[in-house]
């Protein structure tokens, strides 16, 4: 019983990090029709930005804030301006290819220009663990869950409760009618890119302390985020959450009870099953063909 609870908690914590990356992924798709194959690299870059900040002797929180600002400029506005805007009229596929190319370029730049090796990043949470009734939960897991949870709840509140948030949702649901309603579509789309960039920085802050910062760390995070988004429902924000947590927990359960060798396989089988049987995702709504 203790095992199971512990597996569930740490799986949920890992899943929450996947969910953050997946959340940005789905937001981009909804608002801008972008499938971002460089999402993992969007997590990797801020990790290195924070690393650079720490190397200059900055405290973690300041390095994090600076990384957020840089990410918003480069991975948010810059990405939109330079890559997405010129390409979006060509359709989904060229943009997908471009983000694939971008992922390779970003990864290789870090490798050639900075370092091919892994680097440690200090954890924002204390070490040690909390023991309640024979169940041990590490502070890092608790902290991850708390921070990720706060961000998700905050984001939901923003999207549902504020005027800007609702306007963004309107854009996501139907760009044309949003425009007719007088919503500044361009600005709303820009906001989505900014939010995606900041979510990536948070994911980097949470994931790098245990996984280490490395130029290719985006491969596995990107893939997980991608799986999570599709399993949960590509066009649903809540879907990304469900998908992320589901993957994190299932991986832990299979790794523990069945075989660690096929740990990665769980998410995959679930993913293939969803694609083939319910392509819109567990929580998603079927999309009509826009053509």
């Amino acid at each position: 019983m203790g095992d199971l609870v512990q597996l569930l908690v740490s799986g949920t914590a890992t899943g929450a990090i996947y969910a953050l990356a997946a959340l940005g992924f789905t937001l981009l798709w909804q608002a801008a029709g972008v499938i971002n194959f460089a999402q993992g690299e969007f997590v990797m870059l801020p990790a290195f930005a924070m690393l650079a900040g720490l190397a200059f002797g900055l405290p973690v929180w300041l390095a994090f804030l600076i990384a957020c600002v840089l990410a918003a400029i480069v991975l948010g506005a810059g990405f939109k301006q330079v890559v997405v805007d010129p390409l979006i009229r060509h359709g989904v596929i060229p943009l997908v290819i471009a983000t694939l190319g971008l992922a390779i370029a970003v990864k290789s730049t870090v490798r050639a220009g900075f370092s091919a090796e892994a680097h440690p990043l200090p954890s924002p949470f204390p070490t040690g663990q909390l023991s309640i009734a024979g169940i041990n939960v590490s502070y890092a897991d608790i902290g991850t869950l708390a921070l990720a949870g706060a961000i998700v709840i905050g984001l939901q509140a923003f999207l549902n409760r504020t005027v800007t948030g609702r306007a963004m949702q309107a854009v996501a649901q139907n760009t044309e009618s949003a425009r007719v309603l007088g919503i500044d579509v361009r600005r709303m789309v820009l906001y989505v890119f900014l939010i995606n960039a900041v979510l990536a920085v948070v994911a980097a802050l949470l994931i790098a302390p245990t996984y280490l910062a490395k130029f290719d760390m985006g491969d596995s995070i990107g893939l997980k985020a991608f799986f999570a988004a599709i399993i949960g429902g590509f066009n649903q924000t809540r879907g990304a959450l469900l998908g992320g947590v589901l993957i994190g927990v299932l991986e832990n359960l299979v790794g523990f009870y069945i075989s660690p060798a096929y740990k990665e396989g769980v998410a995959l089988v679930l993913f293939l099953g969803v694609i083939l049987l319910r392509p819109e995702g567990l929580l998603g709504k079927a999309e009509e063909r826009k053509v």
């Binding site: 740490s10 245990t210 996984y211």
Partner: peptide
């Protein structure tokens, strides 16, 4: 006997098995 993957990042399940 715990097998892990090359390049694996998440060791929580593996460590838990050793712990138990």
């Amino acid at each position: 006997d715990i097998s892990t993957d090359p390049g694996q990042v998440d060791f929580s399940a593996a460590v838990l098995r050793a712990k138990q």
